[in-house]
Amino acid sequence: MINIAERHQYILNKVQTEGSIDVQSLCKELQVSSVTIRKDLKLLEDKNLLYRTHGGATLNNPYTVDKPVNEKEHLQSAEKMRIGALAAGLIEDNDSIIIASGTTVLAMARCIKPKGTLTVITSALNVALELVHHNDIEVIQLGGLLRKSSSSVAGPYSDNVLGNVFCSKLYLGVDGIDLEFGLTTTSASEAQLNRQMISSSQKIIVLADSTKFGKRGFGRICGIEEVDHIITDSGISDQIKKGLESLGIKVSII
């Protein structure tokens, strides 16, 4: 049986090679109990060598923090524009859609070229301002408390409107996607609004660059199984892609 120092080095080597590890696999490989592995992971996390997650650990911090929208807009901007262009191409003639908040859905709004009359319901002020110049787009701006960090609204006023409509698609931006925990955002009130949007939509399309995978925000939106389609970039791992597709989720990579 290897000693604790050797066990810790094995764990660190594995997480550095694979990016993430799970407790059960480590138990089998090291022939120790799950209690021992969890203690090992805690000790290594206390030394800032990894981050514990539900059922395992990862090399990257899985927890997201809220950032101003003008700061987020410059992150992965090229990927967001390509994701947005593909998403905009899914809009059909005379469609009625919901666009949530976020810089990736804003990129999509900039790519929209309506076919016939398009109705857009949105919580995002920047999305509404982007679309208001199109004569063929009817924009319904949801009301509520304005979140300055995201330039979007949330609250009961928005919920009331969404409770009386039904749209073909929801284009949803998120702060985190975790196969076990689901979709998350940094705001509990925005997560609630997103859940109402999901209830008012036939198809859920998530726009997220690859840095969002394996992350968790404060507010849980829904389980990953509720998503119909995810559009992302080539930075997503094959393991995550296969995991999503095994759940019946369409994954488009730009």
Rank of each mutant, 00 (worst) to 15 (best):
I4Y: 00
I4L: 00
I4K: 05
H8C: 00
L12C: 02
L12G: 00
T17A: 12
S20I: 04
I21D: 11
C27W: 00
E29W: 02
L30W: 02
S34P: 01
V35P: 01
K39E: 02
L43N: 09
L44S: 09
K47F: 00
H54D: 13
A57C: 12
N61A: 14
Y63Q: 14
T64V: 14
D66W: 01
P68Q: 10
N70P: 00
K72F: 01
A78Q: 05
K80Q: 07
I83F: 07
A85I: 08
I91C: 07
I91S: 09
E92L: 15
E92R: 14
T104I: 12
L106E: 12
I112F: 14
P114Y: 07
K115N: 09
G116I: 02
T117I: 14
T117A: 13
T119C: 12
I121S: 03
A124R: 03
L125T: 10
H133N: 04
N135T: 00
D136L: 05
V139S: 06
I140P: 04
Q141G: 06
S150H: 06
S151H: 08
S152L: 03
V153P: 12
V153N: 12
P156Q: 01
Y157S: 08
S158V: 03
G176H: 11
F181W: 13
G182L: 07
T184L: 06
T184D: 02
T185F: 01
R195W: 07
S199K: 13
S199C: 08
Q202N: 15
I204V: 11
K212H: 07
K212S: 05
F218S: 08
R220K: 06
G223P: 05
I224F: 09
V227D: 01
H229R: 03
E245V: 04
L247K: 15
L247A: 10
G248W: 02
G248A: 03
I249Q: 11
V251F: 06
S252W: 07
I254C: 15
